[in-house]
Design a protein around this nucleic acid. Sequence first.
DNA 1: AACCTGACTTAGTATACCCCAC
DNA 2: GTGGGGTATACTAAGTCAGGTT
Length: 776
Amino acid sequence: MDFVTEGNSHGVPHLREEPLAKKVRLGAEERLPASRDENKAVTRRQVQNTPLCLETGSTSAEERKRRKKRKVSGAKAETEEVGESPGNCSKARALEQENLNGAKGVEEKVERDKEEGEGAEEKEKSEVKTEQELDREIEVQKEGVGEARRKKVQGEEASEDGMRGKKANKGRKKGATSKPGCLGDSRKRKAKEEDGGARKKRKEEEECGKEDKWKWWEEEQHANGVKWQQLEHRGPYFAPAYERLPRGVSFYYNGKPMKLSPATEEIATFYAKMLDHDYTRKAIFKKNFFCDWTEQMTSEERKKIKQLDKCDFREIHEYFVERQEAQKALPKEEKQKLKKEAERIQEEYGYCTIDGHREKIGNFKTEPPGLFRGRGDHPKMGRVKKRIMPEDVIINCSKGSKIPKPPPGHKWKEVRCDNSVTWLASWTENINGAIKYIMLNPSSKLKGEKDWQKYEIARCLKGVVGKIRAQYRADWKSKEMKKRQRSVALYFIDKLALRAGNEKEEGETADTVGCCSLRVEHLRLHPRMDGKENVVEFDFLGKDCIRYYNLVPVEKQVFKNLQLFMENKGPGDDLFDRLSTSTLNKHLQDLMEGLTAKVFRTYNASITLQEQLDALTNEDDNVAAKLLSYNRANRAVAILCNHQRATPKTFEKSMQNLQAKINVKRDQLCDAKLELKKAKADCRTKRDVKSKAALEKKQKHVEKLEEQLEKLVLQATDKEENKQIALGTSKLNYLDPRISVAWCKRFCVPIEKIFNKTQREKFAWAIDMADEDFVF
DNA sequence: AACCTGACTTAGTATACCCCAC
DNA sequence: GTGGGGTATACTAAGTCAGGTT
């Protein structure tokens, strides 16, 4: 992994020379058991959670707590080294202000209204499509892109002014669907052949066509803080009531069957269902479960059930396994019936009306009761998550609207009308006391607008990041300890895309950290390592207990600072003892409006995608090769952000299958080439029309096979490189979709190859507004 | 400034579902 | 028609960050 900063004055983590998968692989080698199959009990997560093997060792929660207290009081007592004037970035701010205001601006409505009619017409036409029509459409789309490109060459103005770029895009759109071809025939053919999933697409489009799409991005935004004027919904859909176990299914204690009270039995089924899960092998899980379970028992039961290991849930477990299998084996009509019912529920509860538009809700069901599945070494795992009752639920809707009816015999905790928030209903969960919300789907206006804004802020950062970097580099030498720590932390956040790292309550959650909460034990300093100087070895558990392991050569001054920060500290002490996320974010806010630590992650992710796409895409490649380039660029971002996944259980097998396919194809190609040779000879001797036609046919066959083989090989490469990396998270949350849309348009790749249906819905705004010239 | 809480985004995993090869 | 594999979706935990209170 080359995290070396040479040739990159800002120490930006993007644009690396070496394959980007190395970091993860390095971590993985240490993390993963040699053979998962041999040792099924050892999951990735478990291995990740084993204490970090640092000389310093890990620190207990109590010790950390003690130290933290000391840190806080110590920091208060100690005066700053030198009282320098506070960081002044008003210039940067002033510069940025303009940009940001622009970003928030909204287009003139008149212009829009004029064009609305045409849009509607277009939509109507495209409602139901045949396969041929779809293929034709792709060609036309490509032709349009060519037209757009030609226009660009002629000097047409590109629209890239962020949230204001609508007008120009509209103009482009019209052109993009009408003008005749720019592509050569062979390329058109290629595109046609490669888009095999036309049937699937048609189905998707039919579904999409049903809903009339609301182009909220062409409308005015609400005044500051107001999220809606009108909101009406059906309230949450409650988890089904508990059903008693059938007679023949029993819980056993100490080998003897035992009838349990309904509440006790229900909780027992939660555990029984998880019997073949790793959780039930964890001591904390068992302890927490037993503790909460006994609390729910009747006094009679409590007297009898004293030890968990005398409890036998196996019969209950088997019952649920069988029931699930029976469910799967249900006759078609029964399955249809169930599906219909699910659809009905979705129809009734899954949508709301917001400002006159029907929008999909993200999660309209309350979370069912069960056992808490905290990740990593969560101290509360196994605790009983209580059933949510209407009496726990707060409903949020507009005043004049139809207030949802609670289930018969129940009432809501509260009905309120607060249009400064986006949630429709909420309740407080019993494990951590956190509030859970029912909110809209990502395709909704409320979510989409926020998403769009997020990328606009990240784009603003692009304009000032140079200054910010210059400043934090200068601050590395500050006489103020606070500033030094802040500047080094910011360097890490920028260069390594670390999360901010809020303080967490000790003992309440798994011990994970981010930048500001790094402890001395999470870093090791190597003045020299593998021929590189000033190498910092990071090894800590981040969000969701995903291990972050990285060897990073840093600049000399950073290295020196780290030595200074670590001086006279124990392994469990905070590295940045004078820094918190709130002071860091306050500082960032001064540098640029809207800037917070996480914006760096968004910015660096998106800029990395853009740069990698530019570097990796070859215009002459076929679609499969271009997709590999895209995935590689996406992968670079996923690695930067440390988005990992467990290697899919079926990985090895499916890899073998793919390899087998490749081998078959190779053989076929070999045969086809032989036949081609024969046909050539035949043609030379006979010299008639028939043999010439045969030759042509053979030639085409070989070409086709070659193409197919190449596609398979690319697929295999992609798969292998993607083994432990999760691309979805960055695609969904960090990459400005307009970069992908522009790339698709520029390189004639159908957007469906990059975004699936859900993603297209979420990014509808970007797909509609970005043209091929969009630059992040 | 610390602390707490609410609102919202980001995250990995479990499961449902669909399609293709047989 | 079926089973398996792969993708899409559902689910909910775990973060970030801001604003109010002490």
